[in-house]
Design a protein around this nucleic acid. Structure first.
Length: 583
RNA sequence: CGGGGCGUAGCGCAGCCUGGUAGCGCACCCGGUUCGGGACCGGGUGGUCGGAGGUUCAAAUCCUCUCGCCCCGACCA
């Protein structure tokens, strides 16, 4: 067997099978194309094998992450994938993750419990605490790029949301929050370089840092219609936030300049929901105030929102300072509020139940809301006069068209794929795991941590979501498994074979990543496959052009064809690649 | 977790309702004709019909259980 450098390959000796038909279980474009291009095979729900070609693209993405992280001063480590329960007990995450059933766990022959790591805060923190004793040893940022395991509720979209996946995970340790700011910004800068190099159109949004107690968190979102997450953006000023985190400016109010009137009851038989009441009374939804009853670990809570708005449960959770939040079941609403679902009245609530109101109902007059008894609503409701509000907060979800919180221009809602996340963690893990050092004054302090993640396979899939056409993948040069594909139009023809071989050898000799379709197939088949595989540059060898001493250079992204003389072809290819790289 | 659907050849599917020894397209192998955008003709290879149990003279088909997979939803009053 002849040794072949990995940057060159003849298809006739490669392990690659493309498929014509769309696999039945593939839904996302990237999943379909990765499967059809023979790069990816499903083994089980959310578990995939990569073929040699798939691995090459995956490794490209991985190498870019590694290069940029090394450049940013982070140090690569290897932390265990198989982690003992005790380590997770130290941080308190075992019970939480096990309860959420996200953790794959197993038992060894002695009955010891382990998990397959979904992330490695505990492992890295225990590594650092064993080595760092002084502020002089800080800061340090450690990272790894290894397989992670999460028992996702619903794996889907191929590499996009798997149960086993390759992830970059980085962890910074600083002596103080100013240090953390610097480490965090260094990661952010590295992330930007990584996704730019991958040719991705992305946006950075504020994300919820939630109950974990972090102080800041941002997500890197690749904009794509198939994205699983909704992101709110302001085209005017660049504001961006995850839907859960998004704020809005003050919305126009329907009751502006109206004078306050008395409250009067109106019979609304069987009309519980907002839509139903709106229709029955002939009013707009924004004229209504909805009362949502939530159960939390601290008891039932009533949330007031304008009728046309939806609750942002993450914001609500944060505003209430609770860990658990769920809409109360129908049977529980009446005992808690004195009225059945659909008729709860903010003015008719029992003492003791906590009431939190969204800013959208502040100053409301002449509003309509539940009367606090079945089949009755009230008109002329005025929040400040009639309701007892314990807390005011922004707990409504942003909508497209709502004013931007920064500049007031209309917001847009787009779909995005979360490819990376950076998070100022603080001292949660360093305190729990006693990762402490001595500062200048001799005091013992926990390290201030940041945690960072990039989905490698997801980044690759996102690149395909953004770069494809009806015929196949259009790889950005940086992620393409091969830069060039030589298509021999007639492998049986001696002159064609010689010209193809010569170009292949010349490119291989100069280290160009070249794939040579030397199969005994008809040209049409090869063209279709070349488009499907989507390498940035294709060289057609043979036919009419070759008779004139020329080869055809075809760029995948714009399908432009240009003729180059056979003899200078290798040089022309290298130049074309430089042009593509500069694009 | 709730609802719906699907497991039949490597891939995509039909057959099931109304039981009677398993079929189509693609791919694959052989021969021939073709050869610049997924060729054509002829001949072939390949399936314990997801698994277990049951009914029956006879089960892909009917019944029971089970495993796997896919899609939608997870309550906004």
């Amino acid at each position: 067997m002849r040794y072949l450098p990995e940057f060159q390959m003849r298809w006739s000796r490669f392990f690659l099978q493309t498929v014509r038909e769309v696999p039945a279980d593939a839904d996302a474009v990237s999943h379909i194309l990765l499967t059809r291009a023979g790069m990816l095979r499903r083994v089980s729900a959310g578990v995939y094998s990569l073929t040699p070609l798939g691995l090459k693209a995956h490794r490209k993405a991985e190498a870019i992450v590694r290069e940029e992280m090394n450049r940013a001063g982070a140090l690569e480590v290897e932390l265990p994938i198989l982690q003992p329960r005790e380590l997770w007990e130290e941080s308190g995450r075992w019970s939480r993750y096990a309860a959420e059933e996200i953790l794959f766990h197993l038992t060894d022959r002695k009955g010891g419990e382990y998990c397959l790591a979904p992330t490695a805060e505990e492992a890295v923190t225990s590594m650092v605490r064993a080595g760092v004793t002084s502020y002089r040893q800080l800061p340090v940022t450690l990272y790894q790029i290894r397989t992670k395991f999460r028992d996702e509720i619903r794996p889907r979209f191929g590499l996009m949301r798997g149960r086993e996946f390759l992830m970059y995970d980085g962890y910074s340790f600083d002596a103080d929050t100013e240090g953390l700011d610097r480490s965090y910004r260094a990661q952010e800068a590295a992330y930007r370089r990584i996704f730019e190099r991958c040719g991705l159109d992305f946006t950075v949004v504020d994300a919820d840092s939630g109950a974990i107690g972090g102080s800041a968190s941002q997500e890197f979102m690749v904009l794509a219609s198939t994205g699983e997450d909704a992101v709110v953006r302001c085209p005017a000023c660049g504001y961006g936030a995850n839907l859960e985190k998004a704020r809005t400016g003050p919305r126009p109010v329907p009751w502006e300049d109206e004078t306050i009137t008395g409250m009067q009851e109106v019979e609304t038989p069987g009309r519980g929901g907002i839509e139903s009441v709106v229709e029955f009374l002939g009013i707009t939804a924004s004229r209504m105030i909805k009362c949502l009853v939530y159960e939390t670990e601290k008891g039932c809570v009533v949330a007031l929102l304008r009728g046309d708005l939806d609750a942002n449960e993450v914001a609500l959770k944060n505003a209430l300072g609770v860990d658990h939040l769920a809409l109360a079941s129908e049977e529980k609403v009446e005992p808690a509020t004195g009225a059945p679902v659909g008729f709860v009245g903010p003015h008719a609530l029992p003492e003791g139940i906590r009431v939190i109101a969204d800013e959208s109902v502040r100053g409301a007059v002449n509003a309509v809301t539940g009367a606090g008894r079945r089949d009755w609503h009230v008109r002329g409701f005025a929040t400040e006069r009639d309701a007892r509000v314990d807390d005011w907060a922004e707990i409504a979800q942003a909508r497209a068209g709502d004013p931007c919180p920064r500049c007031g221009k209309p917001l847009e809602i787009a779909r995005g794929i979360e490819v990376g996340h950076i998070f100022k963690l603080g001292t949660k893990y360093s305190t729990a795991l006693k990762c402490e050092f001595t500062d200048e004054k001799g005091d013992t302090k926990p390290a201030v941590m940041g945690t960072y993640g990039i989905g490698v396979g997801r980044t690759m899939a996102a690149a395909i979501e953004q770069h494809h056409d009806a015929d196949g993948i259009v790889w950005p040069l940086a992620l393409a498994p091969f830069a060039v594909e030589i298509v021999s139009l007639n492998s049986a023809d001696e002159a064609t074979r010689q010209a193809g071989d010569a170009l292949y050898e010349a490119l291989a000799a100069s280290g160009t990543e070249v794939f040579y379709d030397d199969r005994d197939e008809r040209p049409g088949v090869k063209f279709k496959d070349a488009d499907l595989l989507g390498f940035p540059l294709r060289v057609n060898v043979g036919g009419r052009a070759l008779k004139d001493g020329n080869l055809e250079l075809v760029t995948r992204h714009d399908r432009k064809v240009r003729l180059v003389p056979k003899d200078g072809a290798a040089e022309a290819v290298r130049k074309a690649l430089e042009e593509l790289a500069a694009r």
